[in-house]
Design a protein around this nucleic acid. Structure first.
Lengths: 225, 225
DNA sequence: GACGCTCAAAGTGTCAACACTTTTGAGTTT
DNA sequence: AAACTCAAAAGTGTTGACACTTTGAGCGTC
């Protein structure tokens, strides 16, 4: 059921896209599963046109694969493909870190440090790992890079895929405490304006996250879900 | 006029896409120009559906921008956007170079060196800068990286944009001789299995290409074409 | 001349029907 | 039981018409 109330001017195609994206994230459209235009049109009570629009857009962000005349499918990432994704993160987030080291003003850097310190205080008070938000740190670094293309590549494709995989993996024990200290090391390198070190530390950080995730061995069990 | 003869099974939408891509590369659909569905449908003698399919696909590779209910437009890159593109190349091609340094077999590396040497001999014999194909070298490095995501990011988006800009720029005096010697330095670093150096040299190579291109000052004249 | 309003024309989004391709499953043969 | 055939069903691609939104020409007012 597509919400047709126009809280803001939008098309059915875009609404269908949002809802299909949710379905993918939630696993209702699982990796490898068929994307059936006609069935979705019935489900959402729209014609096939907006479904096609949404599917094309999902294809554009790599969440769906499609061949002429064949049923579209939600992408199913192999272990190798996931490894490739993490390498892309190393390349891009590492480089973003370099750009930040070279470009971030002292004032903005002070604000980032203050925000990280606040998160640490929250953690000490609450003992909640969520206070050490992994994604917020990365988000801040990437957005601070100032490279719009880099930002849109990460947020436009790669993070959608990782988010989908996250759901598939289910709960992975977090490494928040380790991640937090790695963040601090990265920040110190940035503060010292050592771009090589900052980049290298960010890459290592992501490499460890990749190893942590892929060593959980759950990817080989994806097919059983 | 869309060629409807089925040399291979394909859809009208895909054929329209190919032809629109050509039009963009040739400047017939110039950056900033309106993409009018109805007019293109008449021109290609198909219904608006395949046009929409093609436009969605062009949007997926960032060559077209679109808002609901508004005319799509061929993207028009600002100077900053082009700079961002080159930075992306630095990040990704630099990283590809690192991967190659770490992974390429001695045999494959020897073949690459031989191919480069052949190009040099051709150049000495012909005096034709085309013998020192800039793109072939990069292509070989990127494909040899073994990271499918990286390859598709470069070939799926970034190079389309650069190709479009190349046409817009018109003829830029080539720096083939300099580029060639830089290629050799990169190869030597790869051969020495010095990933840091290889990456750094590739980045510098691309940075110089960027500076060379953007210093031609032609980008500020784009609007006059 | 500049600005604002009106409204028809132009253009995009959606729909349902038809055209075309692929998949499915029943029936037959080995 | 396995393999093959083939028609029907299912699903995708395309079309033209209608619904909806945006644009711009024409007109009136200041």
């Amino acid at each position: 059921m597509v919400d047709r109330t126009a809280s803001e001017a939008s098309t059915l195609g875009e609404r269908v896209f949002e809802q299909m994206l949710d379905m993918i994230y939630r696993g209702d459209l699982a990796p490898g599963s068929v994307v059936n235009e006609a069935a979705l049109a019935v489900r959402f009570q729209v014609s096939r046109g907006p479904i096609r629009e949404a599917v094309r857009r999902l294809q554009g962000i790599q969440l769906v694969t499609r061949e002429p005349f064949a049923k579209a499918r939600v992408v199913k990432l192999s272990r190798q493909a996931l490894a490739d994704l993490y390498e892309m993160r190393e390349a891009l987030e590492g480089y973003a870190c370099r750009l930040v080291t070279e470009r971030m003003s002292d004032q903005d850097l002070a604000e980032l440090i203050a925000a990280l310190e606040t998160a640490r205080q929250d953690y000490l008070r609450d003992g909640q790992p969520e206070s050490l938000s992994d994604f917020d740190f990365h988000s801040r670094i990437i957005r601070a890079s100032g490279n719009a293309r880099l930002i849109s590549t990460l947020y436009g494709d790669l993070y959608h895929l990782l988010r989908m995989m996250r759901r598939i993996k289910g709960h992975v024990p977090q490494r928040k405490h380790d991640a937090y200290s790695e963040h601090w090391q990265i920040i110190r390198a940035i503060k010292a304006r050592d771009a090589d070190l900052a980049e290298s530390l960010m890459r290592a950080h992501i490499r460890r996250a990749a190893a942590h995730t892929m060593d959980e061995g759950q990817l080989t069990d994806v097919a059983s879900r």
